[in-house]
């Protein structure tokens, strides 16, 4: 099960809340697989992907709003994750019947959320922290 420990927090309520929501869906998927209910992945994986896409849109708007200079690069990074989301959807469709798909899905979800999404977002953590500090002063 995924737990968002301190090193995965951006210190932005809006973004950390989104990441937590994704982690919750991921944990739901892992629980379904562990409990022998992999058929639920057909609904849960699209829910995860939809939440990820909504998060990307919200995050991009947020970064524009706070004037983050590398927004374009980060948008490109988000676009580069489309193939991975397609693969996860495919694994989700196959999960009930196929053990390899279940294992691949489990791994892909973990790497996608913790590395591709959150660790990549940590690139602008310092910017958010400085932005907050300058607003307070």
């Amino acid at each position: 099960m995924v737990e968002l420990t301190e090193s995965f927090l951006l210190e932005s309520d809006i973004l950390d809340k989104d990441h937590q929501q994704l982690a919750d869906i991921l944990n739901e998927i892992v629980r379904a697989i562990d409990d022998g209910n992999a058929g639920e992945c057909k609904q849960l994986v699209p829910k995860f992907v939809q939440a990820a896409k909504a998060h990307f849109a919200k995050e991009e708007a947020f970064l524009v709003k706070i004037g983050y200079p590398n927004v374009k690069k980060h948008k490109e990074h988000h676009r580069g994750l489309n193939d991975k989301m397609d693969h996860m959807l495919e694994f989700g469709r196959m999960a009930e019947e196929n053990e390899l798909a279940r294992e691949s899905l489990r791994k892909e979800l973990l790497f996608f959320l913790m590395d591709d999404v959150i660790t990549s977002d940590l690139e602008f953590k310092q910017f958010i922290v400085h932005n907050k500090a300058s607003q307070k002063s």
Binding site: S7, F8, M114, T119, E123, K125
Partner: peptide
Amino acid sequence: MKGLHVYGV
């Protein structure tokens, strides 16, 4: 998380 986590290096 158990394992390695490196960022912002």
